[in-house]
Design a protein around this nucleic acid. Structure first.
Lengths: 355, 355
DNA sequence: TACTTTCGTGTAATCGATTACATAGAAATT
DNA sequence: AATTTCTATGTAATCGATTACACGAAAGTA
């Protein structure tokens, strides 16, 4: 008795309630609500009106179970409180919202186990697709990826990808971005360009390193592996490493960093040691973090179009489910072009003009 | 035939499949898997083993429909690509993940209709709770909020709240934060402090304004409404307004901004006009955006503990569903203390010491 | 031995929708 | 008038789980 009251009070009206009230069956109600098969105009109207009177709302969970489509997609990122990933997610959400999809977010915090756990949880929740940026590279996840594919759930990698057959990817051309940035530094007259790298088992960092290297080689400068240093994306780390670089007998006259944060650290240390930027040393970063353009000495960086990346990833997903005739696998590789944003930290010539 | 094959190939094993294989019923399988009622140790083991052999994964959708618990919660924010909201969401996700909840994110882009649409969509998706920061203040949404409450779905506001009976909120003490910042500026010797405000129909901005005002009054300084200017949170707007302020016959010697972005604009304009910060003019912002500490001239700001806010909001939700005996409504009002972070843009004394 | 518990499983309803198939009555055709 | 076709609706299965209730067999008690 109490239970009944509670149910009614929580305001759940089902098609059965409507059916009972109108002395028809739930099937008819369902059909009327869906403008589906031929239903007499009279009952359709009646059902529609009664439904809105009774404040009926379709239970998407029931629909999802029946149809096998949850209308949820999962997005897995290392962390959400990073400008880059947050913006990608914004792009995904904005693109998918009009199609009725909801975005479930998961963070891995670069933890391999959490990544696997999240994938499993999303699959159990019957998501219609998974869009992710991988955390690490190991073979343990491959099993998870295969589990996704075996279930015919579209899987799309963005930014940090694993190379797996049948999986679409949306990335930027990191090689080109690094190549452009390094070439720009060379054009400024820099002859000894150090590189603050990052874990090169991750493809994006390896590509940035390779782009940097190729630009040096193509320009005829000497490539010196000893001023390529692998670190993590923290301001403090950038400072520490730059300190060491400046202590060398033959210190660099430019720094190309694979992260804006280490670039900022470099700038802080260079300033602290009394060198002038960009006159003595030029600096360029990567990612176009918001702060790079806000600094009094704005920082040259490579824009990754995260919004565009999110939108593209969402579109690739939509294509995949749209033309889905069962077994047709669409494997799409989208590569966005990075944009080099030349700012004060590397603009010797413009600065001279201004002066 | 083909259909059957497809189903099998997509790897969905149900408890019925396990039951068939073992010549028992699905009920027994379900009980065995849940360690529920008394099941013979033999069959339990057998079921468990067969389940893992057949790669069985519980369909959470079916469970959700049956139990009425989707294990999804909805988070609605104006935008996700803002450091503040992204960090709050991180806090929510990290707190809820261990409890098996998934976070669905929705953006309103400050659009009232989108807010209503998102609420309805989340309710239809049968979320177990809604955590949100409201976009605007109008009475149209109140209907939506009531719809949530009528369904007994926990609703929790964070940061930007509406004042509704029975709804828990997690906010910071914006009044105090503004009061502290203003008091600090006064302690630096500033006598004429302008305030860059924002839409004061939104409570947080009204409170910041009131805190600022109270600090001025309490200190015995003259409160001048004409140097309180309402604007939007953009660097460019901050610049424009500051330009006008500096053109006054009686320009301010400090600016307290309700946003770090307008504070940055103010700093840019002050620098452009050749004034010195903090010697001539002190500046303080609000929100502790990452860039405020990265600037060469770091910006004094008020930290809002977004991570903590997200965690608290999640915990309030958990409490609400935890002790949920049906009709017991817990209305909790959590107010976090803001932290004033004094940095270079307002540190006259420390700077003098350094010099 | 006869009767009562207890234990392990099976039966079937339920959550809230959709939909293939069946069917009654009206309309159209011959 | 008899037959066929349409139309609108009902019946019942289904999606994949959980669970109240029923029941036979084994175990315990007198």
């Amino acid at each position: 008795m109490y239970f009944y009251k509670k149910i009614r009070m929580s305001g759940k009206t089902t098609i059965y309630d409507i059916a009972k009230k109108l002395n028809i069956t739930a099937a008819t109600v369902s059909r009327a609500l869906n403008n589906n098969t031929k239903i007499s105009e009279a009952t359709r109207k009646l059902v529609m009106e009664t439904a809105s009177q009774m404040n009926y709302k379709q239970n998407k969970l029931a629909l999802a179970l029946k149809s096998g489509k949850s209308n949820n997609i999962g997005v897995i990122v290392p962390r959400i409180d990073s400008n880059f990933f947050a913006t990608v997610i914004r792009g995904i959400e904005e693109e998918l919202h009009p199609h009725g999809y909801h975005v479930i977010i998961c963070q891995t915090r670069d933890d391999k186990n959490l990544e696997i756990e999240n994938i499993d949880a999303l699959l159990n929740a019957q998501v219609d697709g998974i869009l992710m940026s991988i955390s690490n590279v190991s073979n343990e996840q491959n099993e998870s990826f295969n589990r996704i594919l075996k279930k015919n759930v579209p899987l799309i990698f963005f930014d940090r990808k694993a190379n797996i057959d049948g999986v679409s990817t949306v990335t930027i051309n990191d090689f080109q971005g690094a190549y452009d940035a390094t070439t720009h530094l060379i054009a400024q007259g820099c002859k000894r360009i150090a590189h603050l790298s990052n874990n090169r088992l991750i493809e994006i960092f390896r590509d940035r390193y390779l782009g940097y290297k190729q630009a040096i080689i193509d320009s005829g400068l000497e490539f010196d592996e000893s001023i390529v240093i692998e670190t993590i994306s923290k301001v403090e780390e950038g400072r520490k490493i730059t300190k060491k670089l400046l202590e060398l007998d033959n210190p660099p006259d430019a720094i190309f960093s694979s992260s804006d944060f280490t670039a900022l650290g470099a700038i802080q240390e260079i300033n602290a040691q009394g060198f002038k930027i960009p006159q003595d040393i030029c600096v360029a970063g990567f990612a176009n973090e918001p702060f790079t353009k806000f600094m009094e000495l704005s920082i040259t960086s490579v824009d990754q179009s995260p919004l565009e990346m999110g939108r593209m990833a969402a579109n690739v997903f939509l294509e995949q489910v749209g033309g889905n005739n069962g077994n047709i696998k669409i494997e799409k590789k989208v590569v966005l072009n990075p944009k080099l944003l030349i700012r004060e930290s590397s603009s010797k010539f413009q600065l001279q003009k201004i002066i």
